[in-house]
């Protein structure tokens, strides 16, 4: 692609299986390029066939290694698998080191696998802003499963659960006791729990803690309700990987249709919320960076206050564009 190709054309090429075109369109989504928006909108309308699996967990829990193993196992069922692997951007330079591919290197030349690394660029919640656009593009490009691997998260970054059809939470042995396991936050969002590194002797304890935590909950007694499984896996021995694939496939098909529809609505609502938030944020930050230096000076000197300044700033941000609804 030596000349600049229009985004609509990139989408058409991606839909015909050209992965270079899909990759370029994802870059434009990451840039937030206005030119790409109609093509991404079209991708959204055409997508919806792929199963989106979110993989999350604390840093070092073994997410990337597990994604590598899982991708292999899904490939063995004949599925084409795309991976969007997210790593953090530096809060100082804005740069990043995206190293998830290192742990998936044996998949490097399989034409049924596509791996894309993405930096968070200041997005909180464990995701990158363009991750869901990328999932749509890869869906349209013919991938059956799209795995989104979040950054290594803390206890509170749970956006992935609002964006994926199946959420897998990875815990490593030795990181906490049974009180950690009943806390609110990340452990609550799992459709499937994985305890990685279960070749290690302390893995049983973690498996037990998680199972006990789940047993403490008031379970949905309906016979067809989903019961969250706890799967021990080992990337060294390969243990548990097939079981995990089985759980993911069961979760895809065994969840009752009304629950699945409710989830689809939840995912759509989240997408709308995030898209509006991102567009607003983009406009806001452009103004904030360029026009607010004088006021920062006054604010630091405490001659003006943050509340009235912020309301004024937001009003000017919205009126500066095409939105004509005063905020306050």
């Amino acid at each position: 692609m030596s000349v600049r190709v229009a985004s609509a054309e990139l989408l058409a090429r991606a839909a015909a299986g050209n992965l270079g075109a899909a990759a370029r369109l994802i870059s434009r989504a990451e840039a937030g390029a206005a030119e790409a928006r109609p093509a991404l909108a079209e991708a959204y309308r055409r997508a919806g066939r792929a199963h989106v699996v979110g993989i999350t967990g604390v840093p070092g829990s073994g997410k990337s290694t597990l994604v590598g193993r899982l991708t292999h196992a899904l490939r063995a069922t004949g599925a084409k698998v795309a991976v969007v692997a997210i790593d953090p951007s530096s809060p100082y330079s804005g740069g990043s080191i995206l190293g998830d591919r290192v742990r998936m290197s044996d998949l490097a030349t399989d034409p049924g696998v596509f791996i894309r690394s993405m930096a968070t660029r200041g997005a909180t919640g464990g995701m990158a802003r363009a991750a869901l656009d990328a999932a749509d593009v890869l869906d349209v490009a013919g991938f059956d499963s799209v795995i989104i691997e979040t950054v290594g998260v803390g206890q509170d970054e749970v956006e992935i659960a609002k964006a994926s059809h199946t959420t897998v939470v990875v815990s490593a042995p030795g990181l906490g006791d049974e009180i950690q396991a009943i806390k609110a936050g990340i452990l609550e969002i799992a459709d499937i729990h994985v305890v990685s590194k279960c070749d290690r002797p302390d893995a049983n304890r973690t498996l037990t803690d998680l199972k006990l935590m789940l047993a403490l909950g008031t379970a949905d007694d309906a016979p067809d309700a989903w019961r969250v499984p706890v799967v021990g896996t080992s990337a060294i021995t390969g243990e548990g990987i097939e079981n995990l694939v089985d759980c993911i496939q069961r979760h895809r098909t065994a969840v009752p249709s009304d629950a699945r529809a409710a989830r689809a609505r939840r995912i759509a609502a989240f997408r709308l919320e995030k898209t509006a938030e991102n567009l607003l944020l983009e406009r806001f930050q452009a103004r904030f960076r360029t026009h607010e230096t004088d006021r920062i000076e006054s604010l630091a000197a405490r001659s003006i206050d943050p509340y009235s300044t912020a309301i004024d700033l937001l009003n000017r941000t919205l009126h500066g564009g095409h939105v004509h609804e005063p905020l306050a």
């Binding site: 951007s89 530096s90 100082y92 330079s93 804005g94 740069g95 990043s96 080191i97 995206l98 190293g99 591919r101 290192v102 290197s105 490097a108 690394s117 930096a119």
Partner: peptide, 12 residues
């Protein structure tokens, strides 16, 4: 390169 604000993908 990271400290210069670039996204760096390292493949091992």
């Amino acid at each position: 390169l990271r400290d210069a604000g670039m996204d760096v993908i390292y493949t091992g």
